[in-house]
Simulated assay, not measured.
Amino acid sequence: MIISKNSKMNSRMRRLKKSRCQMKALGVTRLVVHRTSRHIYAQIISSESKVLVCASTLENQIKSRLTYTGNKKASEIIGEIIAKRALLKKISNVSFDRSGFKYHGRIKVLADSARNFGLKF
């Protein structure tokens, strides 16, 4: 598949590389978010690139609470769960890595929910 020079995917990858390089240079713990049309995923990754905490709409306990896993309600629940799991592991300060996605819609709802439940970024 040939991707044009100004495609959505190339723009997202450019934003992703720029922000991720800055965070790796600082050596911070990151809250990484990825979304598809049907699901949303969140991971907290240490500066050594080890996954410390994760949550996604693929988990049975989360999927059972939702009728559809690709909306803002699902993002809100994932933000709540990732924050609670992080606080149990004594992680409170993270940097928000939105993986090149624009900060609106489901990404913004997840970030706001994680902040409301105790994560600081």
Rank of each mutant, 00 (worst) to 15 (best):
S11V: 08
S11P: 03
R12M: 15
R14D: 04
R15F: 07
K17I: 04
K18I: 07
K18F: 05
S19W: 04
R20E: 07
R20C: 02
R20L: 10
C21N: 05
Q22S: 14
Q22G: 03
Q22V: 07
M23H: 09
M23Y: 06
A25F: 00
L26P: 03
L26N: 15
G27Y: 05
G27D: 06
V28Y: 01
T29V: 12
T29W: 00
R30F: 02
R30P: 04
R30K: 08
L31D: 00
L31G: 00
L31I: 03
V32A: 12
V32W: 01
V32M: 01
V32L: 13
V32P: 01
V33S: 07
H34M: 06
H34L: 14
H34D: 15
H34S: 15
H34W: 14
R35I: 14
T36L: 08
T36I: 13
T36Y: 13
T36M: 14
T36E: 12
S37H: 07
H39F: 06
H39R: 09
H39S: 11
H39W: 08
H39Q: 13
I40D: 03
I40R: 02
Y41W: 12
A42S: 15
A42P: 01
A42Q: 12
Q43A: 02
Q43H: 11
I44R: 02
I44Q: 01
I44A: 03
I45C: 01
I45A: 08
I45H: 00
I45R: 00
I45W: 00
S46F: 04
S47A: 13
S47E: 11
S47L: 06
S47M: 04
E48G: 11
E48D: 15
E48H: 07
K50S: 12
K50H: 10
V51N: 11
L52N: 08
L52K: 11
L52E: 01
V53W: 03
V53F: 01
V53P: 04
C54N: 11
C54K: 12
A55Q: 02
A55F: 05
A55Y: 09
A55H: 05
S56M: 04
S56Y: 14
T57G: 05
T57W: 10
T57V: 13
L58V: 14
L58W: 01
L58F: 15
E59I: 06
E59T: 03
E59H: 10
N60S: 13
N60H: 10
Q61A: 09
Q61F: 08
Q61C: 13
K63Q: 07
K63A: 13
